[in-house]
Design a protein around this nucleic acid. Structure first.
Lengths: 160, 160
DNA sequence: CAAAAATAGTACCTCTGCGGTACTATATAC
DNA sequence: GTATATAGTACCGCAGAGGTACTATTTTTG
């Protein structure tokens, strides 16, 4: 339902937790599992994915662990999300992969769906990890055009 | 992967197809299946869901069919999407249902995830069915703040 | 050098829910 | 009354998410 996968959610929790301690501090999987109250095997799995996407660096052996490769202010939610669940695309049609859809050549809204994906992706690129790490301060967010937009009661909601 | 379900995609195709013919024209399931090149059983299933959500009105018997309840300019993508797959929420935590998440009381980013969902939902509420029905004319879209934003090459994409 | 502690990588299993199909009931036009 | 359409329900198969287990590798420490 336009829903992030659970593992992605966990990834956001882990990245946020690490971001709070600063880029240079090292976190091992066990401690992160304790802090986040998530099961250890799941935590290690997600950390491996974040590592392979380059969002984390690892250090093995005793006193080893993970740390952020970039400052929390330089990591967007879009990066974290796509690190775990691949490219952000609201429909298969909006990826560049061909042959996935029978309607390939006749789909009437293909181009528009790319637009939709762009809008969502753009919104997620505007929110940084540092924004999530400081929940109390997030009362506004940069809109698609980069300007600040209040997050509460924003605009004409016709739906729900 | 932050992906619309196929059925939702079909819903958008069907609604767009109907929107092109205007609000008052009646479409039966068989013709819509032909037009969209989608399997008839699937088309009828989606139409039923759109009907129950109030986006369509139906007329039974010979010469029966479906038609839009509102003008295409008054139907947002958010409405169509939530009609088929329920409330737009990027994580279970951002719905109002409680008891879904073990972290309920300790989740460090719960409030922020609501914000993320709001941003995405807001973006989808800004795009109307009439925008999708006229693909060639959609070169800009209203941003989160309501201002027009070009859809091509817009802004600093750090990801992908 | 050996043991302990951490990550790296792979493989596997379970189970939800999406996607698709079939069937029956009901309403309407002629 | 018959043909044609929608209304509603129930069912099935399967991909993929979520979770687990096991082994290999690296590094610190005594």
């Amino acid at each position: 339902m336009i829903r992030l996968a659970k593992l992605t959610d966990y990834g956001l929790v882990l990245m946020t937790t690490m971001a709070r301690k600063g880029r240079t501090s090292v976190h091992n999987a066990r401690d992160l599992a304790m802090l986040t109250r998530l099961p250890l095997p799941t935590v290690t799995k997600v950390l491996k994915q974040l590592l392979q996407s380059g969002l984390l660096v690892s250090h093995r052996g005793i006193n080893g662990g993970y740390s952020l490769t970039k400052e929390p202010t330089d990591v967007s939610l879009a990066e974290v999300i796509s690190a775990i669940e691949g490219p952000i695309a609201l429909t298969e049609c909006s990826t560049d992969v061909i042959g996935l859809c029978d309607l390939e050549h006749s789909c009437p809204i293909k181009t528009n769906q790319r637009v939709i994906s762009e809008i969502v992706r753009g919104a997620l690129q505007k929110v940084m990890l540092s924004d999530l790490a400081q929940p109390a301060q997030l009362t506004a967010i940069r809109g698609v055009d980069g300007k600040l937009v209040p997050t509460a009661g924003h605009s004409s909601g016709r739906v729900q």
